[in-house]
């Protein structure tokens, strides 16, 4: 059962990665690691910034 829970969590984590749901976590990690003096964006700011930047740099989707 415990094994199953670990596996399930792994699968969910994988799907989150593929969907890009873990982007904010990664941004925070990068921010801390880079040692910036300014505070990181909040989660809300980050996602706004992310989609708003896509407005000005579109990416194609494949057929």
């Amino acid at each position: 059962m415990r094994q199953f829970a670990v596996r399930l969590r792994g699968l969910v984590g994988y799907l989150e990665g593929v969907l890009g749901a873990d982007a904010y976590r990664k941004y925070l990690a990068h921010h801390h690691e880079a040692g910036h003096a300014f505070p990181p964006m909040t989660e809300r700011e980050f996602w706004r910034d992310r989609t708003d930047r896509q407005d000005t740099s579109p990416q194609g989707r494949c057929c």
């Binding site: 799907l15 989150e16 969907l19 749901a21 809300r44 980050f46 996602w47």
Partner: peptide, 14 residues
Amino acid sequence: YLRFIRPGKVMEVS
């Protein structure tokens, strides 16, 4: 939902 209610909860909203 993602913009105003629960930002970043991509898995949930999917």
